[in-house]
Design a protein around this nucleic acid. Structure first.
Lengths: 200, 200
DNA sequence: CAGCCAACGCAACTGTGAGTTGCGATGACG
DNA sequence: CGTCATCGCAACTCACAGTTGCGTTGGCTG
């Protein structure tokens, strides 16, 4: 009975990573409805039963893939200039959402996978974490006199990113740099007008 | 060879309506992935083959249900006060989105059904129509000196409704009256700051 | 009111993919 | 070099998409 790593040792880790990656790719291509476990297995160069040994069903597989992909944490830059930082932060987010990791995750949001309770809580947690990060940056901006006191970081973040998700999920339009810059400008103007105070 | 109504005469119209309604309801409940044609038929009190006689497959049925539901047109009020009108318009939209018609449609947006080409074009058309309606109201406000010249109606509309869809599709949070009022105030402030000009 | 015909119900199919089981092959590690 | 977990494989069951042929019904027409 020797200590042997975290339960799932061996080379299985490579299999796990490959299957999750294949699942995200297929998810981005065709959505959750037409996600076939057999197709995932084949794409990963693995047999169907191997997938079922690690994940009991589609739901577990997809959930795991989301949790794995959404663990990417990246914050808002802090150069002392809140206007430039928010603009750059939104641009970075837009690029990430259009990248190899963000794209499948957004596709999953706009998919029936978004209904799974585990995915729902992952979404909320993801957003809460980013709001927490934004909170620090907003507090610094308030201290520097660049934003009015009482600005709600969550409201600011929502105003900032809402147009991006509208384009991605509803109108299916590409997100341009101009969109990003405008979103940042709108959010900042709203904050300075005192419109982004905490909810009553 | 007597004229006999529009091809599908008889009482079939009632069947059609019932099936479409059942489809929307089940779609709102469980999404597109788990939408069973047999379940739709059973819920509508109709046999499976009857459904297939009218719609060749799931895609056609869902598409038809969307087109039927999204035909609801409602505009922006015009009392002469653009601030109050936008606020009331957003509130009305929020209520509609939470109602018996809007709820299934939003559920479809956040579902794999949103990938279907016909549904995609329906979404875009729906948005374009509402933008056209908004365009008139915005032009009137500009003429009344309540908004700066060059305000892009589409940009204003996007800023206006983006927070609603963010709540509904991403954070799964309820849309409150406070959210609506803030969205209207933010959009108006941005427009008056000259941030909602047309894209370059 | 009688009869026709379209719309509907029904049963029986095929095909695909989810999820399961038992067993044999293999590769990493002691 | 032997052990054992991991993986490949074939063969299932089950549910549902989609199809076919035929019997039944209900409304419209003559």
């Amino acid at each position: 009975m020797t200590a042997r790593g975290p339960a799932t040792g061996r080379r299985g880790a490579a299999v796990r990573a490959g299957v999750l990656r294949s699942a995200l790719e297929l998810l981005a291509d065709s959505g959750y409805a037409s996600l076939s476990m057999e197709a995932v297995a084949e794409r990963a160069g693995v047999h169907k039963t191997t997938v079922y040994r690690r994940w009991s069903n589609r739901e577990a597989l997809v959930t795991d893939a989301v949790l794995e992909g959404s663990s990417t944490e990246f914050g808002i830059p802090d150069t002392g200039d809140i206007d430039a930082d928010l603009r750059d932060g939104v641009r970075a987010l837009a690029r990430w959402l259009d990248g190899p990791v963000g794209r499948p995750l957004v596709a999953m949001l706009a998919s029936d996978a978004g209904r799974l309770p585990a995915v729902q809580s992952a979404k909320r947690r993801f957003f809460a974490e980013r709001a927490a990060v934004a909170s620090d940056r907003v507090a610094a901006a308030v201290a520097a006199g660049q934003l009015p006191a009482g600005t709600d970081p969550t409201a600011l973040l929502s105003t900032l990113v809402a147009p991006l998700y509208l384009n991605l999920l509803v109108t299916s339009a590409p997100v341009t740099d101009h969109d990003c810059d405008r979103a940042a400008a709108v959010a900042l103007t709203a904050a300075r007008a005192g419109l982004l105070g905490p909810a009553p």
